[in-house]
Design a protein around this nucleic acid. Structure first.
Lengths: 145, 145
DNA sequence: CCAGAATACTTGCAAAATGCAAGTGGAGTT
DNA sequence: AACTCCACTTGCATTTTGCAAGTATTCTGG
């Protein structure tokens, strides 16, 4: 009557994060949504990494399924679609910024100014709040039509 | 005489991070090294996600190339090998913990106790210092032979 | 109202990455 | 000398990716 050992695939928070962020394209899409104010398919396609159209469609669907994005018609134009970050995605901001701070330190060709890491180190909450405000600005402008 | 536009593949810190962490297996190996004190091939193989041997070898080499791990003979046994986290890897701890805090909030079957996120929220530096101490303990014990 | 452009995808296919099982080679142990 | 343990490597079938082309719906200008 030994208790069934299930393969330990649930429960580990790192593994949970890896399931979402442990994919280059999902990771970069989150950057585009959270940091660069991108919301449409066309904007995502325009990112310098050059994601291909089928992969983009696949990852947008994945991120929607995972509760990171919501897919809504563009109020400005019915033929267009917007992907908005959910609260779950916005709450990922501190982790994303943490990774940027780390990368800024170790990527010798980084574009990010040293002041970025410094300001986050001095006032993490303020830095995050600033990005949240930017997200609100973009989304409110869009939803207003 | 237009200046050559290079495809903007360098410089973005998020992209730099994505190049390392935007891979499920690298991500989980960093967890094993930084959080679970694993150092040998055999220990990594034992993780519940079940990485296969060729992929493990490939990712260990990748992480070594990226300066996240150093490969050294095991002082206890010359036929064995240890992978130690570099400073660059250790400096990734805050980001990793940030992601765990986020995952703990959104993974409804998380194993992590609520107290974990709470203690990190109240004293992030202390939490990170605690993990650093653990890493030192493991590595010093190993290197002592 | 209609031709052409724009947007958000889908499809097909070749190339690359992955997962699995089995094998290799060297050191330690009996 | 035989056996075991460890850290990989190899071969091969399956899956995922990247690229190019195509489709359906919605604007836009004349």
């Amino acid at each position: 009557m030994a208790k069934q050992e299930k393969p330990d695939w649930n429960g580990c928070p790192t593994r949970y994060a890896a399931g979402i962020v442990g994919d280059k394209w999902c990771f970069l899409l989150l950057r585009d949504v959270l940091l660069h104010g991108k919301r449409t398919y066309r904007e995502f396609l325009g990112s310098p990494e050059g994601i291909s159209t089928n992969i983009l469609a696949n990852r947008l669907a994945k991120l929607e399924t995972l509760g990171m994005l919501t897919r809504e018609p563009d109020p400005r134009k019915a033929s267009s679609v917007c992907y908005f970050p959910t609260k779950k995605a916005r709450d990922f901001l501190p982790a994303l910024i943490s990774m940027m701070v780390w990368a800024t330190r170790y990527d010798e060709v980084t574009e990010a100014p040293a002041s970025f890491a410094k300001s986050f180190g001095e006032d993490p909450k303020g830095t995050i709040a600033w990005y949240e405000t930017e997200i609100d600005r973009v989304d409110q402008a869009l939803r207003a039509g």
